[in-house]
Amino acid sequence: MRKYLYIYKSELMSQLQYLFNLVFGFIGCGIILFIFFNLWHYIYSDSSQIINGYSVDQMIWYVIITEIIWGACMGRTLCRKISNDVRGGNIAYNINKPYNYIGYSLASHLGTATVKGIIYTVLALILGLVMMGNFPTTNVLELVLVLISSILAVVISSLFTIFIGLFSFFIEDSSPFYWLYSKFILVIGVIFPIEYFPNVVQPFLKFSPIYVVSYGPAKLFVNFNINDCISIFVAQFIYILVAYLLCSLVYKKGVRRLNVNGG
């Protein structure tokens, strides 16, 4: 475990030099949040109106949290890196190293994600405070739980991305699959809470990755509820386990294929 911590730390330190770029890069994200601020204020007739269980401020905070998590995941970069490792033969060098490739990729990616996550969190929370004038919750325990759940969301999303990136063992280009995944999360999971969808699809969404990588932490932040909290954490742990097992399985199969083909 210590070596993964070390990989994580060195990646984090090297990312610090790009601090300025990250702050600047937040502008794009800030614009989206600003657009949603306007959009939801147009749709909600006044601040007391509740639609599908959410007030207008809650809807905007919801988008803020999901955008932070999505921004910190940087899935496209990770997916491209994994694909390049696989296709460029870099992975062959990793086979006989004393660490697990998936653990290595995850640790180094989380190092990058941490820096971006912190910057985005600080800036997005400031922006939210400016737009709404208050936080949905100031309970420290609740905030800590939201934070943990958000971190788990980033871990799960990264594992899924690694899983998709590893498809490159079997097909030439895995990016269309990543694209499908990102569209699914972005269009359905980032903008609207699950309650906004028709009753028929809601149960499906609750079992889908959306529940653990975007809906969960955002829901807890805007409207904390201990029952939701427990089920979200349970779901997140199950998902981590499943995602990790899927990664290992694909990796093992892929490496075996690599050996057969002679790299």
Binding site: N21, F24, G28, I31, I35, N38, H41, Y42
Partner: peptide, 26 residues
């Protein structure tokens, strides 16, 4: 470069939302 990228993406980001949801200065 970053300024240019951000400036260019501003047009793209706003372009798909109806004008009427914005107010005033924007």
């Amino acid at each position: 470069e970053m300024l240019a990228d951000t400036g260019n993406s501003l047009m793209v980001n706003f372009a798909t939302y109806p004008e009427g949801i914005f107010k005033g200065v924007v």
